[in-house]
Amino acid sequence: MTDRDTAFAEYFAARSDAMRGTAFLLCGDWHRAEDLTQTAFTKLYLAWHRVARHEVLDGYVRRTLVRTFLDERRLGWWQRVRVSGSPPEPLTAEAGHESRIAVLAALSCVPPRQRAVLILRYWEDISVEETAELLGCSAGTVKSQAARGLQALRTRLSPTFNTD
């Protein structure tokens, strides 16, 4: 193994699960999430010598992951990976499996860039400014997209949403 291989392998082992989780929330499908994650990490491998400081590795992979997701959505791949074919019905059953499906299904109905904003801001916990830089838009756009995204989720999930 080269020095790059060794360092890359260590980073992949440490961070691929987390990145795959982010990808899963973006696309709603574990298999597609793995494809997105693999794509992002392969690009990282190619850029390894350029991404000199390890503190920026997460940022690089996250940016690649989200942009790949958005590019594929733009190309129409999303139509084959929707969590459900139609907007979810409000749930009345007990929380748990159903509420998990409901959240994912509701997310799938949020426009992809709004969804990316929601995941970056509230799952990855990155700042408005960083989110704006990653998505190539203004901080104001991030704030408005986040607000609209949350409102869309409220509409989809209300009044039975429950996280228990």
Binding site: M1, D5, F8, A9, F12, A13, S16, D17, R20, G21, F24, W30, H31, E34, T37, Q38, F41, T42, L44, Y45, L46, G96, H97, R100
Partner: peptide, 17 residues
Amino acid sequence: RSTAPPSMSTTGAVHAG
């Protein structure tokens, strides 16, 4: 609550790279 598949192969990722 989601059943995630097993972790991805590190060796496979290195090979792909």
